[in-house]
Nucleic acid binder design. Sequence first.
DNA 1: GCGACAG
DNA 2: ATCTTGTCGC
Length: 231
Amino acid sequence: MTTTVGIPAGWPATEERARAVQDELREKVVLDEPGPPPGTGHVTGVDVAYDDDRDVVAAAAVVLDAATLRVVAEATAVGRVSFPYVPGLLAFREIPTVLAALGALPCPPGTVVCDGYGLAHPRRFGLASHLGVLTGLPTIGVAKNPFTFTYDDPDTPRGSSSPLLAGPDEVGRALRTRDGVKPVFVSVGHRTTLADACAHTLALTPAHRLPETTRRADALCRRALREATGP
DNA sequence: GCGACAG
DNA sequence: ATCTTGTCGC
């Protein structure tokens, strides 16, 4: 079942307002709380696909059993695009539809894995942090690109990592999930530690560079977009 | 001022 | 994110 959502009342309409919201909500992030142990309970991937021409966005949430990586539940939602893509303001584009998809799940999501950043953000409040504060759930961010941050290439073996740096600050880790393949960029969202975020990411990447959660969610939200949009 | 820039 | 064919490799 796919639920339909509109743009939330009071949703920021300007970049200035959106940045102010981030500065306000940032204080509610909980860092360094030991989250659910990696490899146990539920892990949920969320992702979003767009058709900007038709002003349509589709989100998916896929719940996996953390031990077996089998799909336990899934849900989708479609809506109108709520914000343009602006680096640093991605959350305002993705969150309304993602919240609807999460809300449509028949079971608790456990830790939520986001496609993007958490703490590693110009104002230290990326998508994963934002989603965590709004839902109260433990969240982590796993991104495919280093954004504006710097890092040294991790050693070749899977599991190797190096600091992801914003100047002198470590805001995440560049984590190798497959031998010799470009690393992913992991950062803390809400109610987890960086060590746990990396452990979750490794547990979710037995065969591919990207976590099974985001692979499943990516495939599902694309399908939901097709079905909502047609040919 | 110019370029870079999660998805 | 999205536009897009074939191709190399497990």
